[in-house]
Amino acid sequence: MTSSSPPPFSARARGQHRQIDADFPTSARSGLLHLLFDLIERRYLPDWTVVARELHRIGRFSVVEYSSSHVPSLKQATVDAESALESLAWEKLYDFCERLHGHLPQEIGYEDNYGSYIVQVSRGDMQTYIATELQRLFLEEDLAYEFTEGTVRRRGRKHTVEQVAKSQVVLWDSRLLSARKHFDKSLRFFRHPTRPDYENAVKEAVCAVEAAGKALFPMAKASTLGDLVKWLGSTTEISVPKAVCQTLNGVYAFRSGGDGVGHGGANGGKATLEVTEYLLAVCASQIIYFADLANSMEVDVAF
């Protein structure tokens, strides 16, 4: 989910605070413009006409004809690109970042004296460089998104990312197929760059916990997560602290009573960004805990 390179110093020094959501601020637009200048100087992009045309297409601006061999036309393309970067809606700029990575780079090479084509910089290497620089820009600007696998996604806090990654390993047990599907849906709802659905993200995350528990402890004969928690609190086969059972009951209660989350709940509290991210991390931890409990009962769970 995150870049393999460490965050820049400015991001590390800020510490943990609210990330910039539903926006692409002026400073980030300036940073993106600097990246475009860099890419054109490196010849990873042919020239400004390509950039201006793509920005105009994404913004549905008027079509402008440019000539790459005409200096005034190139200058006009540069001006038009800068203007488009300033005026595009924030979500369209994230669209442009994906297009910049996925469609605009062109391989650099030449034909030698023997008629063979020599690749100097491959398209894949260019895309790796662009992805790294976009991710760095997002971190420098404290945006609530990351650029990974060619896609803009909501990134989440470090702890959430780590717990989700660990749970993904556990969820590859063949018996946890249903739980994995629920958790994957939860992440898609949470990570959507322009229309995150926090209520459904919470619902699917808790459904993943329920599905995992029912699959790993069939002897409980539970039909709901609530039934499973009652069994965990009373069985002599394993020992689960009462406080942990209360935590499990807590996420199930929010799943049932949270505003718009499930069962028509309207008085259990709103699924905000902060609440949703907290519950994602908690649900991921609970899935891992269930797997550990199953292992302690000598159930063969793949990690």
Rank of each mutant, 00 (worst) to 15 (best):
H182R: 04
G265N: 05
N267W: 10
L36C: 03
T148W: 11
S174N: 11
N113C: 12
L280E: 00
R14D: 05
A144V: 05
G109R: 04
D292N: 08
G15H: 10
T148Y: 15
G213K: 01
P46M: 09
L45A: 03
L32T: 05
T49S: 04
V71F: 10
L36Q: 06
G59W: 07
K270V: 15
R191N: 10
V63C: 06
F190A: 00
L228R: 01
G59A: 11
V170I: 08
G31S: 12
D23C: 15
M1Y: 06
E54T: 08
M219F: 15
D300C: 12
A281K: 02
R29N: 07
R188D: 05
Q168Y: 07
H182A: 03
S178K: 06
Y198N: 04
V119C: 14
K158L: 09
R180F: 01
D112F: 09
F147W: 07
S256N: 12
Y117E: 08
A144I: 07
F290R: 01
V206H: 01
L93G: 03
S68M: 11
I58R: 05
D259V: 13
Q127A: 06
F61Q: 12
R18E: 14
S68K: 14
Y94C: 11
L134M: 15
P196E: 03
V152K: 00
P46K: 13
S30V: 12
V79N: 14
E199A: 05
R42D: 14
T26W: 04
L248Q: 00
S3P: 09
D184I: 14
R191F: 13
L85Q: 09
E162Q: 12
E65Q: 08
D142N: 11
H17L: 13
L93I: 15
Q127T: 02
R43Q: 12
V51I: 10
V299F: 03
R57A: 01
E140P: 10
T235V: 15
F189Y: 14
V63I: 14
V63W: 14
M219G: 13
E107N: 12
V229F: 03
S69F: 09
R53L: 08
A266M: 09
L100G: 03
K214G: 00
V261G: 01
G226P: 02
A302E: 07
G262M: 02
E133I: 10
Y198A: 00
Q163T: 07
S167C: 10
S256T: 08
L137S: 06
E204K: 15
K75V: 13
G250K: 02
V161L: 11
L232E: 00
S4H: 05
L74P: 06
A215E: 12
V301F: 00
S3N: 07
D227V: 14
R195L: 11
E149L: 15
R180L: 02
A89M: 14
D184E: 10
L55I: 15
D173H: 02
F37Y: 10
E111N: 14
L280H: 02
L171C: 06
A291S: 01
A28I: 08
V170R: 00
V169Q: 10
